[in-house]
């Protein structure tokens, strides 16, 4: 399984949804609060060229938003 990182802010419905989704599917991930980790915030914006959350980094591939279908595909798991 590639390294998975979740970039989020504290009050964000889709961040919460994505966090629950990863937990339900038993995916190990690093949760990063980009309001606290400004370096990670800069990295997220630099990689995605976007200023929105959530962002999921799956082994270096960045996905913006909760795109369930795409995330399932990239993680190679069953829904």
């Amino acid at each position: 399984m590639p390294k998975v990182r979740l970039f989020s802010t504290p009050i964000c419905p889709y961040c919460m949804t994505l966090k629950r989704f990863l937990t339900e599917k038993g995916i190990e991930f690093e949760a990063i609060d980009v309001t606290q980790d400004i370096k990670a915030q800069d990295e997220m914006i630099e990689k995605t060229k976007q200023s929105t959350v959530p962002v999921l980094d799956i082994g270096g591939e960045f996905i913006v938003g909760f795109d369930r279908e795409l995330i399932i595909k990239k993680l190679n798991i069953k829904d």
Partner: peptide
Amino acid sequence: SYCTTCDGPLF
């Protein structure tokens, strides 16, 4: 953005 609470902290 339409979601202030989500994206606001990024500004």
